[in-house]
């Protein structure tokens, strides 16, 4: 059976964010790009699922600029995915266009039994592509998944919902599964894995061949700003009792936070 993993490349969480001089977007100079952390759980879960289903194949697919995105695809191949698919596109495609491109590419590869994604990408925090992909492929989805099991034509999953609660649901496969932290512990790529990955195929698509045009873009970002500078911290003096009463006084009377 075919297993797909959708991944996105994002700036490393350590990255300091700077803008282009005209404020039109991110200045990519000096940014280290990595696989979106939640997508690592997706790759790992796909590998575990393949172990239970011998003969299955894992295709890892990503949309973005070829020069850099190919690196994250190689990382997934080094972890153990079988084949890569790169949809060459701009670095700021919106969720709708991205999901449409992914859906069309997956259809061209004659579909998947399970599609794994991360629950969100840590750059825009949109958490949209997985559900849209489910809609475009007309298959069910489950987001924020921390447990996955599948046999026959169904999957049993646990989703993390608000307040630490969990929802146990059953979905018919094929389906889209959006991984949360806690689903598994992603493996590191081994040295032999990295060597093998160099020889694995990465097939390329362009957006036009998938029927995605500028008319599919529904959201764009403008007016980038940095958070306002905070005034320096007010350090409270004296022994701990004095600090505590001063803090309570400030929270009530100055900050009015209570």
């Amino acid at each position: 059976m075919k297993i797909f993993v959708c991944l996105k490349q994002v700036p490393d969480t350590e990255a300091k964010i700077k803008f282009k001089p005209d404020g039109s977007g991110l200045d990519p100079s000096g940014i280290k790009w990595v696989m979106n952390p939640y997508d690592e759980f997706a790759v790992e879960e796909a590998i575990k699922f393949r172990e239970l289903n011998p003969g299955s194949q894992i295709f890892v697919i990503s949309v973005g600029p070829k020069e850099r995105v190919v690196e994250s695809i190689r990382t997934a191949l080094a972890m153990g995915a079988d084949e890569g698919l790169l949809v060459i596109g701009p670095d700021n495609l919106d969720a709708y266009s991205t999901a449409k491109a992914l859906a069309e590419a997956i259809k061209k590869e004659s579909g998947a039994q399970v599609i794994f994604t991360g629950k969100l990408s840590i750059d825009t925090n949109q958490a949209s592509v997985s559900q849209m992909l489910g809609e475009f492929l007309n298959i069910p989805h489950a987001t924020v998944v921390s447990k996955f099991q599948s046999s026959g034509d169904s999957a049993n999953v646990e989703r993390d919902i608000e307040g630490g609660a969990k929802e146990k649901i059953q979905l018919k496969t094929p389906c889209v599964i959006a991984a949360n932290k806690g689903l598994n512990l992603p493996r590191y790529a081994s040295l032999p894995g990295i060597m093998k990955a160099k020889k694995k195929i990465i097939k390329e698509y362009d957006l036009a061949a998938l029927g995605v045009s500028d008319l599919d873009r529904k959201v764009s970002y403008v007016q980038f700003t940095l958070p306002a500078e905070k005034p320096p911290v007010k350090l409270l003096q004296g022994d701990s009792s004095a600090q505590v009463s001063e803090l309570i006084h400030l929270l009530r009377d100055e900050a009015k936070a209570l």
Binding site: A15, K16, I17, N125, T225, L226, P227
Partner: peptide
């Protein structure tokens, strides 16, 4: 964006 490292419209 980027978990609050910047903002955009």
């Amino acid at each position: 964006l980027y978990a609050g490292k910047c903002f955009a419209t």
